[in-house]
Design a protein around this nucleic acid. Sequence first.
DNA 1: CTGAAAGCGCTTACAG
DNA 2: CTGAAAGCGCTTACAG
Lengths: 324, 324
Amino acid sequence: MATMKDVAKLAGVSIITVSRVINSPQLVKESTRQKVKRVMEETGFIPNQTAKALVSNQTRTIHIMIPESHDISDPFIMTLVSGVASQLSKEYYSFLIRRDWEFPYRCDGVIIMGLNLGQEQEIKQKLPHTPCVLFGQTEAELDWVDIDNRKGGYLATKHLIEQGHREIGFLKIDEPKRFPIDRYQGYLDALTEAGIPLDESLVCTVKNSEEDGFQKSLAFIEQRRMTAIFASNDATALGVLRAARKCNRKVPEELSVVGFDGLFLDQIADPRLTTIHQPIFEVGEHLAAQMVRRIELPDHELLQRLVEPKLVERETVQKKNVGQ
Amino acid sequence: MATMKDVAKLAGVSIITVSRVINSPQLVKESTRQKVKRVMEETGFIPNQTAKALVSNQTRTIHIMIPESHDISDPFIMTLVSGVASQLSKEYYSFLIRRDWEFPYRCDGVIIMGLNLGQEQEIKQKLPHTPCVLFGQTEAELDWVDIDNRKGGYLATKHLIEQGHREIGFLKIDEPKRFPIDRYQGYLDALTEAGIPLDESLVCTVKNSEEDGFQKSLAFIEQRRMTAIFASNDATALGVLRAARKCNRKVPEELSVVGFDGLFLDQIADPRLTTIHQPIFEVGEHLAAQMVRRIELPDHELLQRLVEPKLVERETVQKKNVGQ
DNA sequence: CTGAAAGCGCTTACAG
DNA sequence: CTGAAAGCGCTTACAG
């Protein structure tokens, strides 16, 4: 495999000139540049990035931090990872998945997901000299990409209101993260806009699972007289559908349901779930693009980007019946 | 960031001894080893892999070749990529996705998928000095991992036969790959075992799409008097379901259908599709594990592994009716 | 516009 | 059991 040394000798120039042709060609006289380029083609020269990395103290490798609590074979994670992989690869950065904070390898930057509220503050201590991009917005001075969860919550609730519903239950995910709060806020936004006062007895806190969605909404459905439920994600929405089946309340005729995620579960639900779709693959691409941006432009202003989710209408929402 | 030089000075040994403690500790006297290890901990020393890579001519980076004809956001590819990423990361190898054969970066090995029949022969010329692992079996002298497609085809057909079906249609994917042939062979195996002679008029060639599955099976369903169809993958099986709906043949009462893939489409089908599930995430893990194995043991014998698919029974197969 | 020289942080025969 | 020295293939002030 040809090295810069070989190319230099064949082109009758010094090794430095070859380096310049690659990294700052404008500094090299046209004719020498042509000559060097020709030799590079003839020899099939590929620069050794490892040597470059050593001298410039870069690795061209990104880590993506996925806490051990998340299953990598989950469709959400697979989609995010694929988006990151796709974009990084286009920019010729490689990456690997990291499951904890201790790690025996260096990298140029870390993409971080799954943080709890407040944990953002520790990031700078844990990774003092490493550029980071977070999946999830924060007040901290960090780069991030996030879904506009508040907008999503608003769209879901507004859709139900437009179908004539006024008694709309809300299942709030019980996790110390920001997204449940934002989705709840969006729910409030839509109610306020429509002049519907908040009935706190229609708001219920659930664990993030189909099972708890089922358990909680069982009691919930029987006690309250709501005509629609907005569940904070598709897993709990599936629980609602099961509970409705058990209570003999037909969906969507007697109960409308909207979920949030739109990755997979919405389509296997029976009936197909109307939901707010999060473009997670794109989020992964943005995370990667911002990571590379930050590495190559360390002094760039904060990179923070909100991605729009959108309503996907399927089979679980219907106009409120007159008798309902 | 501490270097080996710093550690050596603090431990009062030479830099070589530090290197030995890391790479071949058995060559170092117990007491010096302890001393060096302590200093490494105190200084939080992390070896610079880039420097190691340069001197040992390794990159600790793997490429995965996904031809441009494949969409990276397809669930099949996302699952495969995630399996590869997961396993490589455990072994501290990073990776990137490559879309063509020309590539300006070096790597320690290439995982290759999506090859057409016969293309395996060119691999060694295209990548003369790079270890490769293929997704897809071949006669060529190469490492590979594959789904046992013949076994899968056998399981699908046998399941239909056990339900009393004897006129079983087969949709053969029209691609210059090996898997359609293997699945067809499995179909023949099951027929032979049951003593059912092959009726070639029941075998139909289709493009790999829902649309062509629909078009071809339309005529197919009307002309023939088969009671069941085994489609070579879930996309074409969905086409069969649509065609059956159009011809007013109820599935599974009047027509049983089995697909192949079991990644996603099978669950969104209506009714839910009985299919042969391919464990693609695991295939990705095996590909990565074999890649690392080959790199670290270059003279190891050929690494070739067949992964078992399995039948997932859902709603599109029924016992053959007496009148059918 | 071009080049000689030092150095990035490791490993590896070779010597003792 | 331990160390001095060369070298992996690049980049980067510095000089001319």
